[in-house]
Computed example of a mutant assay.
Amino acid sequence: MSNHEKPISVAEAQSTLESLAKIEQETNTVLRAPLWLNFIIACSYGMMTFSWASTRHDNLWMLGLIISTIVFLLAIAFYLYNSRLLGVKPKLLPKSKSEFKFHLFAGLFFGLVFALTRVLSTNDIWWASYVGGAINALVLAYSLHHYPSGDFKRNTSRHE
């Protein structure tokens, strides 16, 4: 038993695929945080990485870590609250295997950079804290902008 009474043409199939791609692109645009909020989230996470790598013997960088963590959490809370007000419910947990893999890879990457930055910085490689903070900030800003749905496969925005 078939649901189709006539075969689908190539033009119809291509039109359907283009409309699906457009819907996915519009969904990513709606889920995407504003650039200023993306900047605050990414910079505060980069500052957390830098501050953690720079802490030695209860110095003032621990205060930088605390402040940047508070700013990071407040910015995330503001994004989630603002999204709810706009009628968009951002996903906090992955719903598919590809989303799970993306979240797992991103978490491992950020954790590895965070830990390696601290280890290299405590081994007297002073510039590691700068590089680790910059890497975490830039990668987080890129992933928040280009993959707001948390799914690597569903990225349809090429150069926006």
Rank of each mutant, 00 (worst) to 15 (best):
N3C: 00
N3I: 05
H4I: 10
K6Q: 12
K6V: 14
P7H: 13
S9I: 03
Q14R: 15
S15W: 02
L17C: 00
E18M: 12
S19D: 11
A21S: 11
E24C: 00
Q25K: 14
T29E: 14
T29S: 10
L31W: 05
L35H: 06
F39C: 01
I40A: 10
C43M: 14
M48E: 06
S51L: 09
W52C: 02
A53I: 05
S54N: 14
R56M: 05
H57S: 11
H57F: 07
N59I: 09
I66T: 10
I66P: 00
I67N: 03
S68L: 02
I70H: 01
F72N: 14
L74V: 13
A75C: 01
F78L: 10
Y79P: 00
L80W: 09
N82W: 13
V88D: 01
K89D: 08
L92H: 04
L93H: 04
K97N: 11
K97Q: 12
E99G: 05
K101R: 15
A106G: 10
L112P: 01
V113S: 03
F114D: 03
L116Y: 12
L120D: 05
L120I: 10
S121E: 11
S121T: 15
T122L: 11
W127G: 03
S129Y: 07
G133I: 03
A134E: 03
I135H: 06
N136T: 15
A137D: 07
V139E: 02
Y142C: 06
S143A: 14
L144A: 06
H146T: 09
Y147C: 06
P148C: 07
N155P: 00
R158D: 02
E160I: 08
